[in-house]
Design a protein around this nucleic acid. Structure first.
Lengths: 137, 137
DNA sequence: ATAATGCTAAGACAAGTGTCTCTCAGAGTC
DNA sequence: GACTCTGAGAGACACTTGTCTTAGCATTAT
């Protein structure tokens, strides 16, 4: 059987999020940050989650002084990318455009973001996406 | 503690997808469709997945003739909505605009979709996102 | 040195997921 | 009636996820 793909469950994602935000931290530091954002986990729970993330290669750790200091190996961008890709593949026939449409229809954007989107779209039609280089020109 | 929210795991989602596509079907019929789309599950596996979906209230069934006929209770739109919402909440600070931006930057749209998006955005700025007449929580 | 404290390692444990084997009852066949 | 095919139902079983308890080692305070 094909081994299951590496996933990042919600609990682990929450830990990663504070790691991204703080850059790095010990279990206890992260636990503190998590408590502030409403998680009521015990020390051991956070340690377990970090251990699992570590086994998956998503975080690294170095022993410093007393405790291990953990830092993220995977970036927020990468996780976003993967999640979005998987969503698009599973529910939008692999067409990101469908998702965009869905989002715009069901959630009106605040004006500033609408403006940004407009700009992006216009750039896109001026420099149509051919196989060519980006903007190196 | 707070009960875990009802989720639809990937395997169940695959079954739902053929249900949406066919409208309804018996275990054997769905199994056939799934085989065509590459799933190699056994009869019992599909039956189990339908049973679990049924317990979650996502599909309904009526006995007809010999076998049970299943049909979806939840729509594709609803599932999409929930998945998107959860993605936005978890990785885009609850701001759908960020996701839109991300999508547009990383996946250039085909011209026809770009046009559609443009139209949508323009409509949006003409009929601004009414800040009033909304209910507060 | 002892005790108190913080840290990691090891593992427990229930619920959720992915997948299947077995058994039995009803319908159709000879 | 005995045999066979189909489908339902029960349950198995390993792995994942969410969460925690405990035991043991290293560091620090008394």
């Amino acid at each position: 059987m094909a081994k299951r793909p590496v996933t990042i469950p919600d609990a682990e994602l929450d830990v990663l999020k504070v790691l991204w935000q703080k850059g790095q931290g010990t279990v206890r530091e992260l636990l503190g940050a998590l408590h502030e954002s409403g998680r009521t986990w015990s020390y051991a729970t956070v340690a377990t989650l970090l251990e699992r993330l570590s086994n998956k290669g998503m975080v690294a750790s170095d022993r410093s002084e007393l405790a291990f200091v953990y830092r993220p190996v995977i970036s927020k961008q990468e996780v976003r990318q993967k999640r979005v890709q998987s969503l698009v593949d599973k529910l939008y026939k692999g067409e990101p455009g469908l998702l965009v449409m869905h989002l715009l229809k069901s959630h009106p954007l605040p004006p500033d973001q609408a403006g940004e989107v407009k700009t992006l779209i216009e750039q896109m039609s001026n420099a149509p996406p051919k196989g060519g280089a980006k903007k190196k020109k």
